[in-house]
Simulated assay, not measured.
Amino acid sequence: MAEPLTATTAHQGAGAVSVKRARSVDIYAPQWRNFLFVAPYLVFFVTLLVVPLFWGIWLSFHKADTFSSGPFIGFGNYVRLFNDRIFLQSIWNTFYFVLLTVPSLALLGLFLALCLNRRTRSAAVLRGLFFSSSVLSVTIVTLIWRIVYIPDIGLLSMIFGLFGARAPAFLSDPSLAMIGIAIATVWWCIGLPMMLFLSALQQIPQDIYEAAALDNANRWQTLRSITLPSIKRSFVLVVIIQIVFQFQLFGQALLMTRGGPNNLTKPIVFYIYETAFRRWDLGLGAAASEILFVLILVAAMVQFLVSRRKADV
């Protein structure tokens, strides 16, 4: 005999149906309302990065100034650039500066990280001192180093004077001006590579070092076989970051040498600034900006691919 349907059994039946429906819903299905959480970031990303990028490309094909976009001239601005001796000199200056600073920052940052990777109070104080220069503005950094480089009465002249020698004229000698800017830049930017390497070193398990010590491995063997292979990815990251940063040299050259002597310290960004905002030739400045973008992209990708190929080998 069939059991009569009661309110309790009806309620249980409805509950079972609702559970089955809930289970049928895919919990991994995309929830479009989650887009609201990233929408503010996307708005700023598109407004401040994507739109200016394509706007700059569009301007580079026009004879534009501050007041109008001007007529379409195709690759005319790019032809003008590569016929400009000062622009070609600025490309060489930028590459020379990158060659001076990026290897120095990577190797010196690694050296400092290896020396200061200790759980002591003195190591913590030194880490703070080396990183403190990174929080300074470019104006303060250039002011400090202009005082260091002042002929006859600067700090460098005083140090050389103790040995009866004359200090190099870093800001006026054509062969030393870019080196002087590079020294100031390395002092300013060394904190970030050091901290990135420190973070990577502290992720290496100590068990590996203990096993190496049991095998009587010396410090050089441990560094070559354990430490350097373990931080290889961090080294590539540091190099790529510094390539992107140092290709954008501007403030140091502007405030320390004004691009001189004889345009030998004028980087591409300085050339863009003078062209677009002093000569009001926005089309030519936009074309130079796009060339700088391509140079940074190519340099970073070459470094990444070369490092990846070495890692695969």
Rank of each mutant, 00 (worst) to 15 (best):
Y96E: 14
L42N: 10
L114E: 08
L228N: 03
I204H: 06
Q242P: 04
L53G: 05
L110A: 04
L297S: 08
L126W: 10
L116W: 01
E210T: 08
G161I: 02
Q252E: 12
C189M: 14
W145M: 06
V298C: 08
V43R: 03
F37P: 01
L264A: 08
F75I: 13
G76E: 07
K20A: 15
V302Y: 02
F131C: 14
F163E: 04
V313R: 13
V50R: 08
L114G: 01
L112V: 07
A311P: 05
R308N: 14
V186M: 03
R224W: 13
I153P: 03
V125R: 10
I57R: 01
H11R: 14
I204Q: 08
I140K: 13
N34P: 02
P174E: 06
P52R: 05
V51M: 09
N83F: 04
L49P: 00
F45N: 09
G74W: 06
L305G: 05
L176V: 01
Q252A: 14
Y273V: 00
L171F: 02
N34E: 13
F270E: 02
G259F: 01
F250P: 06
A7M: 09
L171R: 05
L192Q: 10
Q252T: 06
R127D: 03
F247W: 07
F61Y: 12
S199K: 01
W58R: 15
L192V: 14
V25A: 06
Q242N: 15
N93E: 09
A213Q: 15
I231H: 08
A39Y: 08
D215I: 05
M194T: 13
G164Q: 00
F250N: 04
V38A: 13
V135L: 14
A184N: 11
T66A: 13
A106D: 02
F304T: 04
N216V: 11
P151V: 02
N93K: 05
R279D: 08
I181N: 03
L214G: 07
I91K: 06
I226W: 06
A276W: 00
N93G: 12
P40W: 05
R21H: 10
S234L: 03
L99I: 14
V17D: 10
L284I: 02
V125I: 13
T265G: 10
F170Y: 14
C115R: 12
P40Q: 09
V302Q: 00
D152I: 02
R21A: 14
L99P: 03
G13F: 06
F111E: 01
Q206G: 15
F37N: 04
R233W: 10
L264F: 04
N34Y: 10
